[in-house]
C-alpha cells in the first residue's frame, strides 16, 4: 500500500492495539524514534511487548512508556545500563518480563521474520544459559541453536530522510536496527527529519525501499536538533 505522510505523531501511531508486539529502533539515542514513543504513550495501548536493543534510559522515551506500566514484556540484548533505573525497578519487583537475546541473534530473528524464513540455526550462545531449552544441532562439526523469527505487529523506527514513496535513508550509526525492523512488522512507521519529493532521493542510495514503510512522520523537534552540517549530508 502507498506510504501515508502523517500530519502529526498521533496519526502516525493510530490503531496500535493492546497486546501488540512493537519493534522499536535505535541504539541508545541514535535512531531512537522518541516522538513516536511519546505519541504511543499518549495513544494509550497497553500490555505491549517491546522489542528493542535496550530497555530505556533515564525518564524519557521507552523508559517513560515502561513507567506508565504499559509494557508486559521486553525482548532486548542489553537492558542494564547506568541510567536504566525504570526498567531495573520494574524487573526487580517482578512486574515486567524480560527475554535477553544476543544482539546479533536479535537482529537476525527480525531479519528472518522480514525475509520469510521459518527459523535458522545459529552458533551464537551455544553452551550458555541463553541456549537452555532450545533445540541444537551439529552442522559441519559445529553446534548451532535453533532460533525462531521475531515478528512485530508494529515497528517504530527513526530515519534521516524519506521521500513521498516512503523510501528511507539513514544517517551514520543511527541506521542500526531501522532497516531490519522495517521489514519485520505489519505496520511500519518511520520518524524522519525531512520528507522530499518523489525523485529527491537517489535510488542508488535508498536503504529501506518504500514497500516496507506504511507511515512517515516528520519530527520538527528532531529536525531542530540536527546541525547545519548534518543537514548537508
Amino acid at each position: 500500500m502507498t506510504t501515508r505522510l502523517c500530519a502529526d505523531a498521533a496519526e502516525a501511531v493510530a490503531g496500535i492495539q493492546d497486546g501488540a508486539t512493537v519493534l522499536v529502533g535505535g541504539f541508545g539515542m541514535a535512531g531512537m524514534p522518541v516522538a513516536l514513543i511519546d505519541a504511543l504513550i499518549r495513544q494509550g495501548a497497553e500490555d505491549l511487548t517491546i522489542v528493542s536493543n535496550n530497555a530505556g534510559n533515564g525518564d524519557t522515551g521507552l523508559a517513560a512508556l515502561l513507567a506508565e506500566r504499559r509494557v508486559r514484556k521486553v525482548i532486548c540484548s542489553f537492558p542494564r545500563q547506568s541510567d536504566s533505573y525504570v526498567f531495573d525497578a520494574l524487573y526487580r519487583a517482578g512486574e515486567i518480563e524480560l527475554e535477553v537475546v544476543p544482539q546479533g541473534t536479535l537482529a537476525e530473528r527480525m531479519r528472518a521474520a522480514g525475509a520469510g524464513i521459518g527459523a535458522f540455526y545459529c552458533p551464537t550462545g551455544v553452551g550458555t544459559p541463553l541456549a537452555e531449552g532450545k533445540e541444537t544441532r551439529v552442522i559441519d562439526g559445529r553446534a548451532h541453536v535453533l532460533e525462531y523469527p521475531i515478528r512485530g505487529d508494529v515497528a517504530l523506527i527513526g530515519a534521516h530522510r524519506a521521500d513521498r514513496m516512503g523510501n528511507l535513508v539513514y544517517r551514520k550509526t543511527a541506521r542500526n536496527f531501522g532497516p531490519v525492523m522495517a521489514t519485520a512488522a505489519t505496520l511500519v512507521v518511520a520518524q524522519v527529519r525531512e520528507v522530499v519529493e518523489i525523485g529527491g532521493i537517489d535510488p542508488e542510495t535508498v536503504v529501506t525501499p518504500g514497500i516496507y514503510v506504511d507511515r512517515v512522520f516528520v519530527d520538527q523537534v528532531l529536525e531542530d536538533r540536527v546541525s547545519q552540517e548534518a543537514r548537508a549530508c
Binding site: R80, R92, P102, Q103, T124, V126
Partner: peptide
C-alpha cells in the same frame, strides 16, 4: 553475567563476538 540472583542479565553483542 555474574550469576548473582538479583543481577539483571545483559549480554549485548558479547556472545556474537566471542564465537564470530
Amino acid at each position: 553475567h555474574t550469576g548473582e540472583p538479583d543481577a539483571i542479565p545483559a549480554v549485548g553483542g558479547a556472545m556474537d563476538l566471542a564465537i564470530g
